[in-house]
Amino acid sequence: MHQIGSRDHRPELNQVILELICENQAGLPVYMQALSGNTNDQKAFAEVTRQHVQSLQAAQQSRYFVGDAALYTADSLSALHQQEQLFVTRVPMTLKDAKHAVSNLQTERLETLGDGYHGYWIEADYAGVPQRWLLVRSEQATKREQQTVTKNLLKTGTRELKQFQQLCKKRFACQQGAEQALAEFSRGLSVLRIEQGNTLAQPIYSGKGRPKKGQPRKESTTS
């Protein structure tokens, strides 16, 4: 009997993960383990740091343990700190402290790092481990983000303008209904803004075609 796994018949997903640690000079593997594609990177890193880093540290006399953002978890950092192993990694932006540090970036403290990069160091103690974070701003990335923001604003503004034009063509039975619809539309806008919005009453006459002089009105609508 074959038990269907969550990644069977899903070639776009990782079927197997190779956990690999290499030394930095020749790039030779010093630790390797094959894991299921369902393995959580963060949990796997924490397990490695608890069981193998101390042995690797003694054998290789490694000064720094370098990994990607999956290394940055409370369990992994605590294990590294307990083994007095220095580490270098990227702080994931899912952390509240990281979001706060980036949103409160102090431009006057930025120093040139070269190749369009600027940054400065701050002290941190996530998971009770003393560490230093390097906040970096890239001129190239800033330009790309500005282009993306401009494109999205233009796209959203064009869509909202078309929606407003459609609203202007709509007729309502009374002025109150028209004003309520305009207010609801205004609250849903993200780019455009309506100032001094107004409604226009339009009479409806009985019969078809152009109304004759003195022809009584049947009712009024507001648009």
Score class of each variant (00 low, 15 high):
K151T: 06
K170V: 07
A69V: 11
C174S: 15
S62D: 11
Y120M: 07
V53N: 00
A98F: 01
R50F: 12
Q15C: 08
A34H: 05
E145A: 15
N14A: 15
R159W: 08
A58G: 13
S62Y: 00
P92T: 01
G188K: 07
C168N: 14
Y72I: 01
A58M: 11
K99Y: 01
T49R: 04
R90T: 02
K212F: 03
H2R: 14
V53P: 00
F164W: 05
N104G: 13
A181T: 01
L189Q: 06
S78V: 05
P203F: 01
E84D: 15
G214H: 12
L80D: 00
I194A: 02
Y126L: 09
A69C: 12
L20K: 10
H118T: 04
T148V: 03
Y205F: 09
A178N: 09
T158S: 12
G67R: 02
G5V: 05
G116D: 03
L153V: 13
Q60V: 05
A46R: 00
K155A: 14
S6I: 12
R193V: 10
Q42L: 14
P130G: 09
T142P: 06
A70W: 00
R50M: 09
L182Y: 07
K208R: 07
P11A: 11
P11Q: 09
P130D: 08
Q82I: 05
L80T: 00
G207W: 01
H9D: 04
R10S: 03
I21H: 03
L86F: 14
R63A: 11
A70S: 06
A59L: 11
M93S: 15
E219S: 15
F65A: 01
W133K: 11
G114I: 03
Q3D: 14
L134H: 14
A101G: 11
Q85L: 01
Y31N: 12
I194F: 06
E108L: 11
T158M: 10
G177K: 09
L56N: 01
Q85E: 09
W133Y: 02
Q175S: 14
Q215E: 15
G37I: 04
T150N: 14
G209Y: 03
S220E: 07
F65W: 00
Q42M: 13
C22H: 04
Q140L: 12
E195D: 14
V149F: 12
K151C: 14
V66R: 11
G114C: 02
T112K: 15
K169I: 02
G128M: 05
R63V: 06
H118D: 07
G209W: 01
A44K: 00
T39P: 00
R217D: 08
Y117C: 10
V66L: 13
G5T: 08
G177A: 14
E145M: 13
T156M: 10
T49N: 10
L35K: 07
Q83I: 06
G157N: 03
R159S: 15
H118S: 10
F172V: 04
M32I: 06
A173C: 15
R90S: 03
L56S: 05
F87C: 04
Y126E: 09
Q166D: 13
A59Y: 02
